[in-house]
Structures are given as structure tokens and as C-alpha cells.
Design a protein around this nucleic acid. Structure first.
Length: 685
DNA sequence: GCTCCTCGAGTTCT
DNA sequence: CTCGAGGAGC
């Protein structure tokens, strides 16, 4: 045997630990004291985990003042402090499924060591809300004190504010216990946050980055009337101090009891057996996540038996009987490598942030739109900045905020170029409009390319295989200048292009040929007239019946079409008066593009769905959305894009989103795909 | 003149 | 999917 000297702590490690401590303290202050987090939770958790890991490997590093031994920061001074009778602890975190499995193993291990082995542990599973932890003290059944968690020992008195939350009972039902402290979470529903942020934006106040900050900011208002205007919710998930009553024997029974007392308890809870049960709950919650009206950042497992909980006890800052199993972060930090300006079909210039690739919510994000100049200015995003990127319930990533303190020296504010980055034409921004536009028109290659892509689009002329790559090549090589040129392409010239084999060339030619047979509304839509989208194109086609009537119509005639007003009429007339556009239309017809024509308003709705308005949402099984829309239209029905009182039916498929929710709100009839098919078949008009 | 309803346009990634 | 703005109805 040999004596092993105490492991030296390398200097680099010591310095890293010191830096981590300072950094964590700083963020704690920002988060708890200033209500203004500098970095996303996921980033904070990562720093915290790294420090914990270092301290575990080099125990000499652990000091009494290490932030790993504390729960949070100091309470803000302008609200009265409250000392919790029973401390409010935080939970250990896990991200991977293996963390849940390890948790279950550890629990069984410890219970066995404590002399009470259990084969399969029963757990109470709940959602982990993205809100603010709160303790409500009821004395003789009456709400007497409401306090935030603060640092876990001392929080802040926010009683007047909490009284304004409608779901918090001011008096418990049939409660004989002299003192009950209810622990739970205050949170804000997503739609209420959106509403609040709109108000903040309009009044020039700062917006809240997420529901938790909004809840915290709202609760800490010194004027409770402001809190009352912000719609907050409360869910109870446990008990602190309890006098004059015995706590039920299991955690799930405690929640039932709280519910009987009139406390709001989230219905999304269950008991689960063993690690498999935990993972099932986790996956289930993950799938339901987008449907919930509030944000959750994971789930919580607690050993259900209170007796077992007591045996397991606590480590320094968290109970051993509970685990917070988090979802992959929806927010991440990354760097803005560049801000590029894209040119759209109408010449609109859109600044886009090129980002260092970063994983958010399961995908790698490299781009995020910055919408327009005002938007960039509002967030003051600059090249070189470190930014918080979020992929919320929806799919499209957005830059939430800039981490100002990581801005490199000399970073320049973004300026919209005065000349189009593609064609060099002047850029104009009409007074009072948000978007800047390239004035180059079809002279600008970018606009020409976008116009071609629009023309070839699925909902327009529908040329399969004519994507961005091919259009780029066709335009750059000078083969194609307008949509009409597409119909003059031949095998030899196509195959001469890069990465265009014989097979794909003939496929494309075939698709172009197929597209010759179309309908008038698709043709009108394909032209890409400003302010004329699918619906307006359909209205025009139905009203005029043939192309000549449309070409000959003056503004007054156009105004007779429903849904067409002065702005749209002028835009159509302007487009059709342009010699170039007339030439392209003529050339297209000469090239054999054709459609059935009628003499005018003859084709009146006679279908069995005539007069009915439909809205499609979610993924249908047998039909694509486009097919369903076409068939409804063919039967005389109308397909609209948003749900309102005037909607007759909402057709909901899998993973239906906000439209379904709105339909329920308005009491609009919701049907499924099978029912739609029955209506189309006519068995049930 | 105000308000609600719809449509158009722009956008990400697999 | 969301925002902004055009259209229509009150």
C-alpha cells in the first residue's frame, strides 16, 4: 500500500471554477433581482452543471460561499421580505432519458440501503411550468400571505398582487387546519403574454422575453392594479408548512386534497411505475406540449410515498426524491455572423441574420429573419453580436434579444443599403411603410427569379422540379427571362446546364408540358400581380370567366368584383397596362397555355357545398391540403385561411394548431377528414 | 370613421 | 404561422 497524496487542483481548473462562480452570481442577480436574464436558462444550467462537476471532481474547490450551495439570489429590496417557515427548494435537473433511468435506480438503491427495498417505485408525475414559484399561506382557511421563492429561505411579500389572480382562492373550502402553506407556480398563458407584449410594444415599453419574466414582472408591480390587468394563473403542486392536519400518505393524495380545498391543480398529472412509467409520461407530455395554453420546460417526478420521501431526504440544495426532467432547450445562444439582405418577388428587402449553427428545439438553426429595418433597429442586432435564438411552439426561429455585454467593440448598427444588393437599383421606402423595396422591377435578377418561382409554384401553374437551383441557372445563363421562355426550352439546352442530366432535363420538360393545361384562376394567380393572391385570383376568374374580359376591364369594372377595392383595382390595371406584361401573356397563350373559358358570370355556384365556407388545419391523412381545397372549390365551397364566426366548417387533421382552438372558442362546427369526404361525395349535403 | 374579417407576403428546415 | 393592410359592414 502506498499513501496517495491529495490530488492537486490544476491552476487552470481553479481559475475556471472562480470564473464560473462569478458568472453564476452575476446571472443570479440579473435573473432574480433585476428580472432581466442575460442568458437563456439552458445556458445558465450548463454553467451551473460545469461548476458542480468541477467541485465534485476536486472537493477542495467547494467553498461555503459557492453558488452551488444556494438556491437563488437576494430578494429585491423594495418589497417586504418574508422568511419561509419551510424552505422552498429547487429540484435536481436531468436532460437525457438516461437521467430519468439513473434517478429511478438511485431511488431504489437508497431505499434498499435504508432497509425498505421496493421492487417498483411509484412516482407522481407533473408538468414543470415555466413560471414563478410561490408560497401561499392560509391561516384559518383565509389567504393571509403570498411570497415568492426568493433565495429559498427569504422571499418577497406579493400578497396584494396575488390576490388579483382569479384562480387563487381567497378562502379554502372546508379547511379546519389553522395553517396551510400551499406551494405552486404562478404563470402566464401564451396568448396573454402575446397580448401583453403588444400593449408593451405600442406604449414603447420593453417586451417580455418569455412567460416567466412576464409573470415575475407582473407580480412585482408595486401597484396591484397593474397586476390585475395582466392575466395570471396559478397551479398548486405541494405543501409547505401544515398545522392541525396530517398530510396524506402520498404526494398524489396531497394534490387531490388541495383540489378539494379549492386550489387549482393541473389536470395533466399521473402516477407512474418505475423508469418505464416515467419515460412514458415524459414523452406524452412532450407530445402534448404545443397543445397546452402555457409553456412548460419539462416534467417533474416525485416519489409518491411520503414515507419513502422522508427516508430519501435531501442533499444540500435539493430533495433526493424528486427530479426535474427537462425538454431540450427551445432557446439557445449563438453569434450573428452576418446580416444579409434578401430581395423578394415584389422587391421587398428583407434582412436575414446568418447565425453560427446552433441546435434549438431539435433542429439546427442557421438563419433567422429580421423582418425589416425597424425590427432590426428595435432589437439593435449587429454583426458579431451574441443573440438569444428561440424556436417557440411554431417552427420559425426568431432572434429574441441581444446579449449586449458580449457585443464586440466596434460593432456597427445595421443600415439598410441604399442600392439593391442584387441589381444596384435604387431602394425606396414609402413614408409610413415598414418595408424597403428595390425599384429595379423585373430588371432585377432576384425579382425575376422569384417571379418565376411563384409562376411555377404548386398553387399556381404547378411545374414540378422547377426549384430555386434550376431557376438560378436558367436566369443566370440567360436562357430564361420571362415565364414564356420556359415553354421554349429544349432538351439540348437544358442538359447543357450544371448538374442537369438527361433524365432530369426530360422530367422537367415533361412537367412544363403538363403545366400547359391549367385553369384561369391559377393562371391569374401565377402572373404575380401585386395584391392578387389565390383568393383574389379565384374571385377574378369567377367574375370574368375569360381572360379577354379581364384584360379589357377598367378600374370601375374591377371594383364590381367582391373583395376588390381601389388599391387592388389600381394594381391590377397597372400590371395589365405594362407592355411587357401583355407580351408575356400573349406569348404564354401562343406557347399553348390554355384553360376552359366561359362567357362571364355564367359559372355560378351550383355545387352541393355552395355557400359554405371551410377552413383547413392540421395534416389530413388521405388528401393533401391543396387537394382538399381543390375538391371543396370544385363542389362550390369556399376555402378560407382564417377562422371566424362566418366559417361554416373547420376540417381538422392531425396536429391541428391554433385554428382548431379558435374554432372551439367561436363554437364553429369541427369535422374530420372522413366527414369532409362524405360531404364531397354528396351522401350528406 | 371605426372595427372586424380576410387576404397577401415573407420565412425555416427536412 | 404571423403580421400588416385592404375591404366591407356598421
Amino acid at each position: 500500500m502506498e499513501r496517495v497524496s491529495k490530488a492537486e487542483v490544476p491552476e487552470a481548473v481553479r481559475q475556471r471554477a472562480q470564473w464560473l462562480r462569478a458568472e453564476i452570481e452575476r446571472h443570479n442577480t440579473a435573473y432574480y433581482v433585476q428580472d432581466a436574464p442575460l442568458i437563456p436558462d439552458s445556458e445558465f444550467d450548463r454553467l451551473f452543471a460545469e461548476l458542480q462537476d468541477l467541485e465534485a471532481r476536486y472537493p477542495q474547490l467547494a467553498s461555503v460561499d459557492s453558488p452551488t450551495l444556494r438556491v437563488g439570489g437576494a430578494p429585491r429590496s423594495d418589497l417586504p421580505p418574508v422568511r419561509h417557515a419551510v424552505p422552498m427548494l429547487s429540484l435536481n435537473n436531468g436532460l437525457a432519458e438516461s437521467d430519468a433511468i439513473a434517478f429511478d435506480e438511485r431511488v431504489r438503491d437508497l431505499l434498499a440501503k435504508a432497509g425498505e427495498p421496493v421492487e417498483t417505485v411509484t412516482y407522481a408525475c407533473e408538468l414543470k411550468f415555466d413560471g414563478l414559484a410561490m408560497s401561499l399561506r392560509y391561516v384559518d382557511g383565509v389567504l393571509e400571505l403570498a411570497a415568492t421563492r426568493g433565495d429559498g429561505t427569504v422571499g418577497e411579500d406579493v400578497t396584494p398582487n396575488v390576490r388579483t389572480i382569479r384562480s387563487v382562492p381567497l378562502r379554502l373550502k372546508d379547511c379546519r387546519a389553522p395553517v396551510v402553506e400551499v406551494r405552486g407556480e404562478v404563470l402566464m398563458y401564451r396568448r396573454d403574454l402575446d397580448r401583453l407584449n403588444r400593449v408593451q410594444r405600442e406604449s414603447g415599453e420593453k417586451e417580455f422575453a418569455n412567460p416567466r419574466n412576464a409573470a415575475a414582472g407582473s407580480l412585482r408591480q408595486l401597484d396591484a392594479r397593474i397586476t390585475a390587468r395582466r392575466r395570471l394563473h396559478f397551479f398548486a403542486y405541494g405543501i409547505g408548512q401544515l398545522q392541525g392536519a396530517t398530510e396524506p400518505a402520498t404526494h398524489s393524495a396531497t394534490l387531490d386534497w388541495l383540489q378539494q380545498l379549492g386550489m387549482p391543480v393541473c389536470e395533466e398529472r399521473a402516477t407512474a411505475s418505475g423508469a418505464d412509467g416515467l419515460l412514458e409520461f415524459y414523452r406524452n407530455a412532450g407530445a402534448r406540449r404545443a397543445d397546452l395554453p402555457y409553456d412548460i420546460d419539462g416534467v417533474v417526478y416525485k416519489v409518491d410515498s411520503l414515507r419513502a420521501q422522508r427516508l430519501l431526504g435531501f442533499v444540500s440544495r435539493a430533495p433526493r426524491f424528486a427530479l426535474a426532467h427537462k425538454f431540450p432547450p427551445q432557446e439557445a445562444l449563438t453569434q450573428v455572423l452576418d446580416i444579409e439582405v434578401q430581395v423578394g418577388r415584389t422587391g421587398a428587402l428583407t434582412p436575414v441574420a446568418r447565425l453560427a449553427p446552433v441546435a434549438v428545439g431539435g433542429v439546427t438553426v442557421t438563419n433567422a429573419t429580421l423582418h425589416n429595418e425597424q425590427e432590426v433597429a428595435r432589437r439593435d442586432v449587429r454583426v458579431g453580436d451574441t443573440v438569444i435564438v428561440r424556436r417557440a411552439g411554431d417552427v420559425i426561429p426568431e432572434v429574441v434579444a441581444v446579449v449586449l455585454e458580449r457585443r464586440p467593440a466596434g460593432a456597427q448598427p445595421f443600415r439598410m443599403p441604399e442600392r439593391c444588393p442584387v441589381c444596384g437599383s435604387a431602394v425606396e421606402r414609402p413614408e409610413q411603410e415598414a418595408v424597403s423595396r428595390c425599384t429595379g422591377g423585373l430588371f432585377c435578377p432576384a425579382q425575376r427569379k422569384q417571379a418565376l418561382l411563384h409562376f411555377a409554384g404548386r398553387r399556381a401553374i404547378d411545374i414540378d422540379g422547377l426549384g430555386e437551383r434550376v431557376v438560378d441557372q436558367l436566369v443566370d445563363s440567360g436562357l430564361v427571362r420571362s415565364a414564356a421562355d420556359l415553354y421554349r426550352l429544349d432538351q439540348a439546352r437544358l442538359a447543357a446546364l450544371d448538374r442537369m442530366g438527361h433524365k432530369s432535363a426530360s422530367n422537367l420538360l415533361e412537367a412544363i408540358d403538363r403545366s400547359r393545361g391549367t385553369t384561369l384562376d391559377r393562371f391569374i394567380f401565377a402572373l404575380g400581380i401585386r395584391h392578387v393572391g389565390e383568393a383574389t385570383a379565384q374571385a377574378l376568374a369567377a367574375h370574368f370567366g375569360n381572360l379577354k374580359a379581364l384584360l379589357d376591364a377598367d378600374e370601375t369594372r374591377l371594383l364590381e368584383v367582391s373583395d376588390i377595392g381601389p388599391v387592388v383595382a389600381r394594381s391590377i390595371r397597372h400590371f395589365l397596362d405594362e407592355a411587357h406584361n401583355r407580351e408575356v401573356i400573349t406569348a404564354l397563350r401562343k406557347a399553348g397555355v390554355h384553360w376552359p373559358e366561359t362567357s362571364g358570370a355564367a359559372a355560378r355556384d351550383r355545387g352541393r357545398l355552395s355557400g359554405r365556407t371551410f377552413v383547413l388545419t392540421g395534416t389530413l391523412e388521405g388528401l393533401t391540403r391543396t387537394e382538399a381545397a381543390d375538391r371543396i372549390a370544385a363542389a362550390g365551397g369556399r376555402v378560407s385561411s382564417s377562422v371566424s364566426k362566418k366559417t361554416d366548417f373547420v376540417v381538422a387533421g392531425e396536429e391541428a394548431g391554433t385554428k382548431l382552438a379558435r374554432a372551439r372558442e367561436l363554437g364553429v362546427h369541427v369535422i374530420d377528414e372522413a366527414e369532409l369526404l362524405r360531404m364531397l361525395d354528396g351522401s350528406n349535403p
